[in-house]
Design a protein around this nucleic acid. Structure first.
Lengths: 139, 139
DNA sequence: CAGTATCCTTAGGGATACTG
DNA sequence: CAGTATCCCTAAGGATACTG
């Protein structure tokens, strides 16, 4: 964004955009939810559970880590193992994400829009099918 | 986004992205908050209170209206007068936005980051100064 | 006053190939 | 397995001039 007077400052100093950037983007709610479901998750698990490219996944995980929402633990094994977990701060955004999901779910229902069943399983709106939840997007 | 299998469907049917698109974008929290503060707001008031261009403002207002979060009332006067108000649905997102703002505010405070005082006034974290709140970005 | 109409720039996301 | 490294593309946002 170009600067008009104090515009940059306005956005840099804004808690809305700070928080939205931290966990209200296209992928982050899913990543946080995916970790929550498994308690601890590995890199490839994400790529099986979500239609996300490696590059975008890496970027998002690095940001979540930098913002303190998740931890990344590397185990010195062959083949390598890296595990992702939510931090306390990461868990603190879950109720907000639940509220966002619920709002969207209710509004979509009201409008009669089709809702993805996978997300509903993750959120407890639909009975879980572990086979489907494990790797719906495995390529 | 290109389609990989059922990716498009995944996103179209996702309540997170539905809700985020509806009110968790760069400008919409401000617009919703700006209306809330004034109860009813006019087009030019937004451009004085926020560093937003007319084009982007128009787009955002149209989307908010299409999604049922605000109403747009045209009065047949000269010069023209158009007033924007929150709907019941629009008011229903305010608690979620408050939670998002609060999370961001607390986290920014913890990190020692500077927070824009104007937003703090709007949110009651700082004493109101009507002169500043009226048109901080008037050009 | 309340917008359109243009034109332009950039950041986010995507596909794919490669590596320690 | 868990990522980098490239290259590409489009959609969101921005500046500015104009209008009923």
């Amino acid at each position: 964004m170009k600067a008009i007077g104090n515009v940059e400052l306005f956005f840099k100093g804004d808690p809305y955009n700070f928080a939205i950037k931290a966990f209200c983007t296209r992928w982050k709610p899913f990543l946080i939810k995916a970790i929550g479901y498994d308690e601890t998750t590995r890199f490839n698990r994400f790529t099986k559970q979500l239609p996300i490219s490696e590059k975008v996944l890496t970027e998002n995980l690095r940001e979540l880590e930098a913002d303190g929402l998740i931890t990344r633990t590397v185990y010195a094994e062959v083949p390598p193992r890296v595990e992702y977990k939510l931090t306390e701060l990461g868990r603190s955004v879950c109720p907000i994400l639940e509220a966002i999901y619920d709002w969207g779910w209710n509004e979509m229902k009201r409008l009669g829009l089709p809702i993805d069943p996978l997300g509903e399983m993750w959120h407890g709106y639909r009975e879980r099918d572990e086979k489907v939840m494990e790797s719906p997007f495995k390529r």
